[in-house]
Design a protein around this nucleic acid. Structure first.
Length: 615
DNA sequence: CTTCTCACG
DNA sequence: ACGTACGTGAGAAGT
């Protein structure tokens, strides 16, 4: 047995590393005693983050409480691996920091199903995010184990990740190769592996106490763990990648980017992504660039380039001037380059051996509680063109279904601010922006009137003023100001609620979301954003509740991605109609008496089929 | 590491 | 006193 002694918060702690079968008997003795005393912290060390790649390996599984950690060398197999598996199966209450990752590691590489582990897990990262969702750069503690431990457990707690990176370097390894390459006997590796569970075990009671002190409802904590499990479930399922098409697309985009870069080079631009070079070249061609960025540099973005290229932002010819050929080439090269690299290439880089991509779905990523999806960022695929979404497919024999909420943030606003006439309009089934336009501009309102009514609705939800609404919608500022006054008269509850919320936020530095009891920190100099925090966060919880409804209805196996106001699914072709109605039912329910409604769209085999692609 | 740009809801 | 559009992830350049 290897034994390391260390000190956390002035208390001695011990890290045990079993080396023989006899050592494992000692582990089991500790395990049963510890299980009787309370929860057991669990962590894993692995070869990397790419859980679904064929080269991924599970190296160690750690167990611990506040004083003892046990690092089981899973990689050695045999009794070491089976002990880790048995202990996980017999644990009653498990603490994990960032559980979705370890759930999926243990599910895929230790044969412990997510379904068996998740119900027994408390995720300290979830607890921390409910206390303060802000990242360090936003003034929060962050949700990493290191900063949380430093704040709640021991200011001197070691940065185990940074410490290991140093060890990697001394062994001639890098941050990328270190996790796979470091010998299983390395003392720093083993010590730090043990410290992570000791810190997690000590973090949990502190976070629990703080949640109680803040009055956070236990139901919210439970709800967030359920949502985390559903997200992990979707991540495990993943989406089928059309490999042939994606390879072809990857090549085509690379060729396009190169071809248009070559065109740009004829005008002296060697790098289409260099705004400085572009600015210089355009000035040399006699163009005038007036816009500046925040830091005072010449702004050369898509809007500027499109104007020079005589194109609308959607890429349609405007016929207002002679198109600048450099601007046209740069727009095309940049788009092809980015779409190729960020999407097509990332799909191919992350696809597993079975041909599926498994994006990281982070259930509590944004400070409003919104979920985020990374690697690949499937929430941000281009929607103006089906070419990228066309890469992703429903399962064999399935079709895609996308079920969207209808104007969910406006409905949430109507519910939270109790907006009488808005609620009447929604309940009456009338299109909300039509309704608003009719009451503000009269019976014969035009399309432009509806557009302005919609823009004002957005302005309310985002906390914007007349100037921004005017800029965004293109309507003259006077018209916007007049319409805003009429809007406030029509829906007086919005302004009243907004100032009430702002006052609260200013006094407490906090926004509290009534539906779930979530609390969000808001800077005192940004209280204008309070309405957005309310709407965005409550809408996220509407999606969360709807996801739980889909599980209750037996639809979880079909769910693929949550996209803020939409659930993407893959369902058997023959049952698509029926299942689509089921999804709509799960996502249609009243929030404080306001109907939240959703509409399902059935596509073909590829996600792109919902965006105009044939297949 | 910061800035700029661009994709989404 | 006044008004402020919100929230993300990601690539590339430049410091």
């Amino acid at each position: 047995m290897k034994v390391f002694r260390y000190e956390i918060a002035s208390e001695p702690v011990t890290v045990h590393v079993p080396e023989t079968t006899n050592d494992l008997d000692e582990f089991w003795e500790w395990f049963y005693q510890a299980r009787g005393r309370g929860p057991i912290a669990v962590d894993t060390e692995t070869t990397g983050l790419d859980v679904f790649s064929s080269t991924f390996r599970l190296r160690t599984v750690q167990f611990g409480d506040a004083h003892d950690a046990w690092v089981l060398p899973y990689e050695r197999g045999g009794y070491f691996a089976s002990s880790a598996r048995d202990a996980l199966a017999r644990a009653r209450h498990i603490l994990i920091h960032n559980a979705p990752y370890d759930w999926l590691v243990l599910d895929r590489h230790a044969g412990i199903p997510l379904e068996d582990l998740a119900p027994w897990t408390t995720d300290t990262r979830v607890l921390a995010a409910l206390i303060d969702p802000r990242q360090p750069q936003e003034g929060g503690i962050g949700t990493g184990l290191k900063p949380l431990s430093a704040y709640w457990v021991d200011p001197a707690s070691p940065d185990t990740q940074a410490g290991l990176t140093a060890v990697f370097r001394s062994l001639g390894l890098t941050k990328e190769t270190g996790w796979a390459g470091i010998p299983l006997e390395d003392p720093t590796f083993l010590l730090y592996a043990g410290l992570d569970v000791l810190l997690t075990a000590r973090l949990e009671p502190k976070l629990r106490r703080e949640l109680a002190r803040l009055g956070v409802r236990p139901e919210l904590v439970t709800y967030e763990h359920e949502i985390a499990r559903l997200c992990a479930h979707m991540q495990r399922t993943g989406l089928v990648l059309d490999l042939d098409y994606t390879h072809q697309l990857d090549r085509r985009l690379r060729d396009d980017a190169q071809q248009y870069a070559d065109q740009a080079a004829r005008y002296g631009v060697t790098n289409v992504n260099s705004t400085a070079q572009l600015a210089e070249a355009f000035v040399g061609m006699g163009e005038t660039l007036t816009e500046r960025t925040d830091s005072g540099a010449v702004k050369v973005d898509k809007a500027v380039l499109s104007r020079l290229a005589d194109l609308s932002l959607q890429g349609e010819p405007l016929d207002t001037r002679t198109p600048n050929p450099l601007a046209v080439a740069v727009l095309r090269s940049k788009r092809a380059g980015k779409w190729g690299k960020a999407y097509a290439r990332t799909f191919l880089d992350t696809v597993d051996a079975a041909g599926r991509v498994h994006p990281f779905i982070s259930p509590l990523a944004a400070r409003t509680g919104r979920m985020s999806i990374t690697r690949p960022a499937l929430q941000t695929l281009p929607s103006s063109d089906a070419m990228i979404r066309r890469c992703l497919l429903a399962d064999d024999g399935h079709v895609v279904i996308s079920t969207d909420f209808s104007a969910v943030e406006m409905r949430v606003l109507a519910a939270l601010a109790d907006v009488r006439r808005m609620k009447e309009a929604i309940s009456g089934g009338e299109d909300l922006h039509d309704f608003t336009a009719r009451l503000v501009f009269g019976r014969n309102f035009t399309k432009a009137h509806r557009k302005l009514a919609k823009a004002i609705g957005f302005g309310k939800v985002y906390g914007g003023g007349a100037q921004t609404i005017s800029r965004q919608s293109g309507a003259p500022i006077e018209d916007v100001q007049r319409a805003l006054r009429a809007y406030d008269k029509l829906y007086p509850e919005i302004r009243r609620a907004a100032s009430r919320w702002q006052r609260e936020a200013f006094q407490t530095g906090m926004v509290s979301i009534s539906a779930t009891g979530r609390r969000l920190p808001l800077d005192r100099d940004r209280t204008y954003a309070v309405t957005n925090y309310m709407c965005q966060s409550a809408a996220r919880d509407v999606l969360g509740q709807s996801m739980l409804n889909t599980e209750s209805a037996g639809l979880l196996e079909y769910c693929r991605l949550p996209i803020h106001d939409e659930l993407l699914a893959s369902v058997p072709k023959k049952e698509a109609e029926e299942i689509a109605r089921e999804f709509e039912k799960c996502m249609t329910w009243p929030l404080y008496g306001v109907p939240i409604e959703a509409e399902a769209e059935i596509g073909g085999r590829s996600w792109g089929s919902l965006y105009g692609a044939d297949y």
